[in-house]
Design a protein around this nucleic acid. Structure first.
Lengths: 220, 220
DNA sequence: GATTGTGAATAGATTCACAGCT
DNA sequence: AGCTGTGAATCTATTCACAATC
């Protein structure tokens, strides 16, 4: 039924619902209405319904949604019922942390390759996996059918490494380098710049706290 | 003159423009038009103009924008011309990496406190700063006038630690725990769940790659 | 009586297209 | 001639309100 393209906003909310449902499941809740869910997690009930309705009829009128069933459906919908292989390139602090973060926790994701160009790091192990030279990435991607590349390299080499991953046949990229990558049409890239989140918070600090001073020009 | 509230989307784009302008500055570009900027970084020219126009007239008609000047203006606008103090709570892999990430790189942000509840970690140093017990957070926030708290603790204690930060007088929170926090109206909280980004990529993997199979029901 | 699923209404964001400067 | 700044037009997203269902 998804003839209509799904928006990123909707999609991210589906992930959110998944998270909420997991929490409900852990607490032994088996049935929930959109209203109750909205109340508990500070969401919008009609939005939940509309988001879900895009993909089918998952609820029972007059009753609500079955938590286990909805969870399973959402997982299937998002493709999380099959495992997905990742490679991580760049094992500085952030890269290592992200590799570990994704390696533990999550059944749906498996880290199958670690790459760096620092000779001191090559050969070391992280979570039982050896760090290899970046030159081997194509071989590993081919061998493991890795779909996603996580890019945690310095900004000035990010483009080069992205291009390499594209060439290696990776299907999409999660980029932590603070650059706007020139993208291949074949390979979707999602950039996550942690600094942007801080900057967002700072702006609201100023504007909430200092409504009084906001009248004076804030330049310079 | 921001009498009008600025949307988050706009705000995040301003951060993005800042990043692009920095790159231009490094390359010795002194003047740029919205079109050229759009072309180089794969953005929309009219959107750039509209976003900037919300805050004043920064460009010169017929000419374009002065890179240095616009950079300075944006920095001021976003509040990045003053330093902001951070505390990081939870120094597992992700917390440590984020602490280091924010401690280096960025002039506008200063990490002034590190907290954990693991006795093995307390007393250790990270980037020249000692890790302290979470009980001391109120004192440190008061003493350093820290504005932002970075939350990198396990999901099941995130709410508790958030509440503690609120009580300690922190002004906003960047949360990496995958939970929907019950928020204080006083303290803005931005949650960043790295897993959501992966899930987004996975969805598009399925839907791009498998347009053929998308006709069959994707359930189960 | 309660709650879903959904068309219609509203609100918000983006793009267009051009008047107004330089 | 070229590019900004901006109202108007379009597109997208969210919320409302209610008929359909259990």
């Amino acid at each position: 039924m998804p003839a209509t393209a799904v928006s990123c906003l909707t999609l991210n909310r589906l992930s959110l619902y998944l998270r909420c449902l997991r929490q409900l499941q852990r607490r032994g809740v088996h049935r929930i209405s959109s209203q109750e869910m909205a109340r508990r997690f500070d969401l919008s009930a009609s939005q939940i319904r509309k988001d879900l309705a895009q993909f089918g009829e998952f609820g029972i009128r007059g009753v609500g949604y079955d938590v286990d069933q909805l969870l399973a459906r959402l997982r299937g919908l998002l493709g999380l019922d099959r495992p997905h292989n990742l490679v991580v390139v760049g094992l500085g602090h952030l890269g290592s942390a992200v590799a570990r973060h994704f390696a533990s926790n999550h059944r749906a994701f498996r880290v199958v390759g670690l790459f760096d160009n620092d000779p001191a790091k090559i050969g070391q192990e992280l979570e039982g996996l050896a760090i290899r030279a970046i030159g081997e990435v194509a071989a590993v991607v081919a061998e493991t059918a890795a779909e996603i590349g996580v890019l945690a390299v310095p900004a000035d080499v990010a483009q080069e490494v992205y291009d390499r991953l594209v060439e290696a046949g990776i299907e999409s990229v999660l980029n932590f380098a603070p650059v706007q990558l020139r993208q291949s049409p074949r390979v979707r890239c999602r950039t996550v710049d942690l600094r942007i989140y801080l900057e967002e918070l700072v702006y609201f600090l100023e504007s909430d706290g200092a409504t009084s001073r906001a009248l004076g020009k804030p330049g310079r």
